[in-house]
């Protein structure tokens, strides 16, 4: 047993001593009559019995915890979206994944794409598609793929995975000037989760499970391709596209 272990036991004993003293002093100063006492106990017990029922009927913002099957389905959808982006077959995914789209008429023969925070890594995968159109109109489509938190692992409890696709902030896409399109990473979204359980780690059931020795962690899954967003830009062939960060251009 480490010194820390001994200290924690001594601390525990100190708390026991304080609580016993507290109850003792209460019992000295309080003289309770039997009838009000019984009413008080009955009231408290009734409140506690009703509490689970109230809890059950209260509306909750519960998170859907992903099963392995659901996760595989989401990953497959991500893969299909990725393939569709390069095969120009995004129409069938628009309903689920398209966040917004825009178009812009430009007079110049070239445009520049700029990532505002390239050092943070590319959170928005930019894909440039060249069209045969002779107009000077360029269009942009922002897609958001399935994105999930992998392993919110609570000590003594199973880890859970959740899809947070609808909760992320969107990247900010603006035109700096007539020819420069700027993509800026969105501010971090703050998410708070609460877990309540009837189980406690005082009594470590199923202690043989190695999970018990792991600490409480939240791991965030790294996405398979680029960030959680894709920006699909369609430009006419006669317009050249430049970017310091590199581009995926296809015809």
């Amino acid at each position: 047993m480490t010194n820390f272990g001994i200290l924690s036991i001594l601390f525990l004993l100190l708390i026991i001593f304080i609580v016993v003293l507290f109850i003792k002093s209460m019992s000295k100063h309080m003289r309770l009559n039997q009838r009000p006492l019984k009413i008080f106990i009955a009231f408290y017990t009734t409140v506690l019995i009703i509490a689970p029922i109230i809890y059950l009927v209260l509306p909750k913002t519960e998170v859907t915890i992903l099963t392995d099957k659901m996760q595989k389905k989401l990953s497959l959808e991500n893969q299909m979206l990725y393939n569709a982006l390069f095969e120009n077959k995004t129409a069938e995914f628009d309903e689920k994944f398209l966040v917004n789209e825009w178009s812009r008429e430009i007079k110049e023969k070239e445009i520049f794409l700029k990532m505002m925070n390239p050092e943070e890594g590319s959170q928005v995968g930019i894909i440039v598609q060249q069209s045969d159109a002779l107009s000077n109109q360029i269009t942009g489509k922002l897609y958001r793929k399935n994105y999930f938190v992998e392993e919110i692992h609570l000590r003594n409890f199973d880890s859970v995975n959740i899809n947070i696709v609808d909760t992320l902030n969107e990247p900010i896409i603006t035109w700096e000037d007539a020819t420069t399109l700027v993509v800026k990473n969105p501010p971090n979204k703050k998410l708070s989760f609460v877990s309540v359980s009837d189980a406690t780690d005082i009594i470590a059931f199923n202690n043989e499970d190695s999970r018990k020795n792991e600490s409480t962690v939240v791991k965030i899954k790294e996405w398979e391709y680029a960030g959680p967003y894709y920006l699909l830009i369609t430009v006419p062939k006669n317009i050249k596209v430049w970017s310091d960060e590199g581009l995926r251009i296809y015809k």
Binding site: I152, L154, F193, V194, I220
Partner: peptide, 14 residues
């Protein structure tokens, strides 16, 4: 846990 795009905070009550 903090990552690109999200800061996750989880609380556990027992």
């Amino acid at each position: 846990s903090v990552s690109s795009f999200i800061d996750i905070n989880a609380e556990m009550y027992t």
